[in-house]
Design a binder for these strands. Structure first.
Lengths: 238, 238
DNA sequence: TCATCCAACTTGTATGACAACATAATATGT
DNA sequence: ACATATTATGTTGTCATACAAGTTGGATGA
């Protein structure tokens, strides 16, 4: 019988308690958790509370349960990375700088390693991107898919994972509104962006890693400078 | 009344179902979920199942519940990135390639942007690293802290986040064993690694971004080639 | 020795009851 | 008529009991 910290629902307290015990090694990966009845006796709560707590940890991937056997701790002890949150405009700049680093090299590796299957999918993505090239709001998602396909062509799963993680932030925003406000969406700009995409695409098709790196870096450099000028404008106006 | 996909526990099915409906926008962030009684009627399951499902989504941060009011969808729709799992030796190579891309630029930015506070902490980290330089097992954690401090000095939070994410995989392994087996841990190698660390450190102190990039790239290049040769050896021996 | 069966234990699901809390409708007093 | 209690209703939180379904290990018997 152990006491729990108050101020929350009992199940939430028990979740925190068990999570703590797993983190500090009381229950190591692979270990079997005490049975529900034992947890009931130990913490003096109902089975409902115990089961909801276990249910929560199971949803987190920290536990797996087997009917008739018990609940076991996985080796998923490491915390998962929270979604990238650009936050303010400064954060958008940081994000673009980060993407420039990642995706420049991704494009280069993609050009050097892409398979025939990659080229087929990349063409499909590029065509869709071209179809929405002049649609300021509609080109965001195809744009993301284009970049994601490039990451896949780089033949390194970590570039794909990080690209998906970046995109997880982009997709919901694309459904609602643009992050930065008051950016003129003139056609000349959209045409320029598409020209940049085209040069990236051609370099990858040609298998020219250096050209792909330069094209991608230039592409994200322009975005960075564009947002940066907006930040300066806001800075001088206030 | 809606049917659920079988082949799992009912609560797990309902978790998947609700997660899907939240993902595809049926329940948008801020919306109130149907009450437990309504979910019971709709999916023809007991309240136990409904509550465990909601409990799981709540642990994931997708829902928040308020007693007497209801369950509400948060804007935490984007899923968190799973820990980087190198898996086999091939994965270790992918990880090192990924790190080379990230950390080369991180070191360069750190050299160009580091504050006085950064330099003070970096010196502390480097001294500790020097103290463990010839300890094959004990230098892993100070090594990680050294790299993490460099990421902080780059003044871009995303580089810090990704570095922490990489480290979340390194730390548990450092407590147990080295990932790759049978690597000779001779002193000459450890001395070389430390010399590389020193050149990175000096370049950042000097504020020379180019030198810092070169030093970091060389550092990770060596690791990459070293592991790569191991992979070749294993490949030819089998 | 070996196979079979069974008893005990574990998790999964269902149901009923009540407590705690929030909100809106209703009643009440002025 | 208005402001203030009061009540009714609906919601989530917790407890208890019962049974189903799955697993394990030992007892039993040939």
């Amino acid at each position: 019988m152990t006491k729990l910290e108050p101020k929350q629902s009992l199940s939430a307290q028990l979740v925190a308690e068990l999570r703590e015990q797993i983190a500090n090694g009381t229950f190591a990966p692979g270990d079997k958790l005490p049975s529900e009845n034992e947890l009931i006796k130990r913490y003096q709560v109902s089975r409902t509370v115990v089961r909801e707590a276990i249910s929560g940890l199971r949803a987190d991937g920290i536990l797996v349960t087997r009917q008739g056997v018990g609940a076991f701790v996985t080796n998923q002890t490491a915390k998962r990375l929270e979604p990238f949150d650009p936050g303010d405009l400064q954060g958008v700049l940081h994000m673009l700088e980060f993407r420039r680093v990642i995706e420049t090299e991704t494009a280069g590796l993609a050009a050097e390693r892409r398979t025939q299957e990659d080229l087929i999918e990349l063409k499909s993505r590029f065509d869709e991107l071209a179809a929405h090239a002049l649609d300021a709001k509609g080109f965001v998602l195809p744009d993301y898919h284009f970049h994601l396909t490039i990451a896949r062509a780089a033949q390194n799963p970590f570039f794909v994972q990080i690209e998906e993680h970046i995109g997880a932030q982009i997709i919901p925003h694309s459904k609602l509104h643009v992050i930065a406000p008051d950016i003129p969406e003139d056609l000349s700009f959209l045409r320029m962006v598409h020209a940049e995409h085209e040069s990236i695409y051609k370099a990858i098709v040609a298998g020219d890693g250096g050209a792909a790196r330069n094209a991608m870096r230039a592409h994200l450099d322009r975005s960075l400078k564009r947002y940066s000028s907006v930040l300066d404008t806001l800075g001088t106006s206030t």
